[in-house]
Design a protein around this nucleic acid. Structure first.
Length: 339
DNA sequence: AACAAGGTCAACCGCTTCTGC
DNA sequence: AGCAGAAGCGGTTGACCTTGT
């Protein structure tokens, strides 16, 4: 069964010959592709337009980077995948010269196995409970020092076996929850997690706002974040948390009041906050008025039932990943929040 | 040397989304 | 608003390559 676009004509399938490549390159470089469905006809190819498009995008484009992935590219893939999941096209946008197909293949053939070998679920990037690991016959006796350079989550020496204490996908970060409130997700005893990505969950920013020492710490950790972002992170990591706010639960989940929300939902909430901030504080100094607006934005966003249908993934790219794309990877792996 | 098993990656398939009418 | 065609996307396949026995 051929493509619908070319079901009426006899088309060649399978690997492309050098002659076919030459025809396609010649045509597109001189004429542009225009409508892909008409490309094979004008280029003199017995292929369907879809196949031509794929061949051009994945193999013939001059800007394509060939060869194996660098360690940095690998880390970027892991970082972005953790937030976006199997959105290969989105991930590939962060890797100039790489295609979604290439990234997907690299993930499936290489990264996935590396993560599993470290006892990490490649889907959630969380630790796989030890009994599941045993069931899956995945090697997991990796020493802490051997977790580099893929230490998505590293464990403190105090922690013997986090996987026995938690149920995936939630691996709780220590700080955002006031210990007295009954509305928060359960804390993970004795666990210490490191945070390789810029934290992207935010609590109600009313409690702590001005740039302070803690904030400076964050900005040194995430040098590429704006001051507003580091301030938000800073307050999110603070122990004096507004219990009605919105914050980070783990690298895959966020909390909002009594609810746990997915990263996309959380990001959407922050989108409202961010636009308010951008409109109102060009100097990145948060004023009371802005705080009110942000608070309102958060509340409005929450009230909107987290409709994800119109969600802008580019926002996730630009906002959630603003730090990860240019951060110092090695230093990130050393960061840990302890109880 | 021959074969099997596993890995890699280009290409395909089918579904969804976008765009123009 | 509804439709059709085009484009985009992620999952899957299968040919080829590498490695182990």
């Amino acid at each position: 069964m051929g493509h619908r676009c070319c079901s009426k004509q006899k088309v060649k399938r399978g690997l492309w010959s050098p002659e076919e490549d030459e025809k396609l390159v010649k045509y597109i470089t001189t004429q542009g592709h225009g409508s892909w469905s008409s490309v094979p006809k004008f280029a003199g190819l017995k292929r369907c337009g879809k196949s031509c498009r794929l061949r051009w995008i994945n193999y013939l484009r001059p800007e394509l980077k060939r060869g194996s992935f660098s360690a940095q590219e690998e880390q970027i893939i892991i970082d972005v995948h953790r937030i976006l999941g199997n959105r290969w096209a989105q991930i590939a946008k962060h890797l100039p010269g790489r295609t979604d197909n290439e990234v997907k293949n690299f993930w499936n053939s290489c990264i996935k196995k590396k993560l599993m070998a470290q006892g990490l679920d490649p889907k959630t990037h969380n630790l796989i409970p030890s009994h599941q690991r045993a069931a899956n016959k995945v090697a997991c006796n990796i020493s802490q020092s051997n977790q580099q350079p893929f230490s998505i989550i590293t464990l403190d020496s105090k922690m013997k076996d986090v996987s026995m204490e938690i149920s995936p996908p939630i691996l709780t970060l220590p700080s955002p929850y006031p210990s007295t409130s009954s509305s928060q997700p359960p804390l993970l005893d004795q666990a210490t997690t490191s945070l390789p990505l810029p934290v992207s969950g935010y609590q109600n920013p009313g409690a702590i706002w001005n740039v302070n020492a803690q904030n400076s710490q964050v900005s040194s950790i995430f040098p590429c974040l704006s001051s507003i972002e580091t301030t938000l992170i800073s307050s999110s990591s603070s122990s004096s948390v507004n219990p009605t706010g919105f914050g980070l639960l783990d690298e895959n989940c966020f909390w909002s009041g009594n609810n746990i929300v997915e990263p996309f939902e959380a990001a959407k909430i922050f989108e409202g906050m961010q636009s308010q901030v951008q409109e109102n504080q060009p100097n990145k100094i948060c004023e009371a008025q802005t705080i009110d607006k942000i608070n309102k934005g958060v509340q409005d966003s929450m009230d909107a039932s987290f409709d994800t249908s119109s969600y802008d993934l580019d926002f996730v790219d630009s906002t959630l990943l603003s730090g990860s794309m240019c951060r110092d990877l090695s230093s990130m792996d050393d960061i840990a929040w302890n109880f």
